[in-house]
Amino acid sequence: MSTVALVCTLSFIGIAILLSKWQKLGLEKDILIGTVRSAAQLLLIGYVLQYVFHNNHPALIAVILLIMIGIASMNAAGRAKGLQGGRWRIAVTLSVTETLTMSLLLGLGIIPPVSQYIIPVSGITIGSSMVVCGLFFNQLKREADASRGEIETWLALGATARQAVQEVLKRSVRFSMIPTVDTMKTIGLVQLPGMMTGMIIAGTSPIEAVKYQLLIMFTLTSSAAVTSILLGLLSYRMLFTEDMRLRYLK
């Protein structure tokens, strides 16, 4: 894509700003800030990745992955307000999910052990898992609040914390996985995913692009399941005080 063509894509931002102004949505400032930030961040990471891909040093790859996990944990932790210790639990969950996923991909020889493959696939996996974490905590708090009477009844009957919130955890896990499962059902029919589209535009055979997209889709499904279930196991005690009373969540 030429620089002129790239600049012309700003017309889409202009349309969004005009519509926001017309409907008095008040999103003009946020759209402008988001445009500048996304451009700056992507250009910066482009130069960083060019350097990392050229050197392909394991330490550089590890640093990039740790930064990804750290930023994703801080972002997803915003959905766990009112629950102390959410950030480190998310960080542990993302780290385990990334380690398991990458171990399988590299161990089975699905992708080669080079930064050009490891970092992009890890970015997609961590980003998707971050969304799952946010959805899980949103639903967990709603479910715990809606089921307060049921949970307190179970506790009064002598149930453990895990037993009292078992159904709440199940519903929260299912909710957090809905986008991933729905995407699997409609991929190729309703949408052509970004990775596949980008490869086709770059000149790759559509069949080859489909293979890589299936790799990503299957990986994301597994990582979503691991993320939501592990986060549930690590987080359910956050709903209770030390003397086993259900917290009032904001």
Rank of each mutant, 00 (worst) to 15 (best):
A144S: 08
S103K: 02
V132R: 03
Q163R: 09
P179S: 04
G198K: 05
A80T: 04
S223I: 05
S176K: 07
A91L: 12
M195K: 13
T180R: 03
L106V: 02
G149Y: 09
M177Y: 06
G85W: 00
I151E: 04
S128L: 10
M217H: 03
S228T: 01
L234R: 04
L27F: 13
P58T: 09
L215G: 10
I31E: 09
K185R: 09
T197Y: 06
T197Q: 11
H57D: 15
V165P: 12
R174W: 04
R37W: 00
V132I: 11
Q84P: 14
I90T: 03
R245N: 07
V4I: 14
N55L: 13
I111N: 05
P58H: 04
F137D: 00
A156Y: 03
N55T: 13
T204W: 13
I178Q: 07
L25K: 10
T180N: 10
F53M: 01
P58K: 01
S172T: 04
S38D: 02
A146Y: 14
L6V: 14
M74F: 14
V210C: 01
M195N: 01
T241W: 08
K24Y: 14
A144F: 00
K29H: 12
L220P: 13
F12L: 14
Q23L: 15
Q41L: 02
M195H: 08
F137Q: 00
N75T: 12
G26N: 01
I229Y: 11
L189D: 07
P206Y: 05
A224P: 01
M1C: 11
I69R: 07
R247V: 07
M238H: 12
Y51D: 12
W22I: 14
S205I: 02
